[in-house]
């Protein structure tokens, strides 16, 4: 049990520290790397909770796709982040104050409150034991039945995201040569080659 606790606190601490570093690091590449670290530790927390599916998804999707994409963007766009941060110190006192106030209040509130264990009974779908049904299957059970509405809605959100990305970025520039494979395959010899009989000594 103690190992359980130690692991939890380790993961949690690393998440908090790396989360802070994401915004504190001077080098944006470092920021993204800290983000990846945070994701990994988050996945660790999920494992601790017995949610191995979510842990794997987090690693695969967020670390494997999203964060790497971030990394590419950061490296490809030549943005001077230090310049963008010029005002940072200027606003730091106010920002820190606001943050501190909220933090203190939250700590007071959440610290005061005893977590109501009886609230767990409201949870409609307790996680089934791993020996009975795997996490993935259990998620699927609910996702396609009780949560079908949320599932579909999420799908629609992704659809909109896709449409938006295309609308805002896809450009058909005139004058750009594109490879059209069907055309290439369908070409005949007659279309591609013209045989000209050149008389010697005259040229074309």
């Amino acid at each position: 049990m103690i190992i359980h606790a130690i692991t939890f606190y380790t993961f949690a601490t690393v998440i908090l520290v790396s989360g802070f570093m994401v915004i504190a690091a001077r080098n944006p590449v470092h920021s993204v790397l800290f983000l990846i670290l945070a994701f990994f530790n988050g996945a660790g927390l999920f494992v601790l909770l017995g949610a191995e599916f979510l842990a794997m998804i987090l690693v695969i999707v967020y670390v494997g796709a999203v964060a790497v994409l971030f990394l590419f963007v950061v490296m490809m766009l030549d943005i001077d982040f230090t310049q963008m941060r010029e005002g940072f110190l200027h606003y730091l006192p106010v920002g820190a104050l606001v943050g501190l106030v909220v933090l203190v209040e939250l700590v007071l509130v959440v610290g005061q409150a005893s977590v109501d264990l009886s609230a767990v009974v409201h949870a409609a779908h307790p996680t089934p034991d791993l020996s009975v049904r795997s996490n993935t299957a259990a998620l699927g059970d609910f996702l396609y039945t009780d949560f079908v509405y949320f599932f579909q809605a999420a799908g629609l959100i992704l659809l909109v995201a896709m449409i938006g990305a295309i609308v805002l970025t896809l450009r058909h520039r005139p004058g750009v040569r594109r490879q059209v494979i069907a055309d290439q395959v369908g070409r005949k010899r007659e279309e591609g080659v013209e045989i000209v009989s050149v008389k010697p000594g005259q040229g074309l």
Binding site: V98, V101, E105
Partner: peptide
């Protein structure tokens, strides 16, 4: 944008503090 964001956060903080 960050001014705008600040306004929002200050709003939240103020409301939370008041109610607290």
């Amino acid at each position: 944008i960050y001014h705008y964001a600040f306004a929002m956060l200050i709003g939240v903080a103020a409301a939370a503090t008041y109610l607290y």
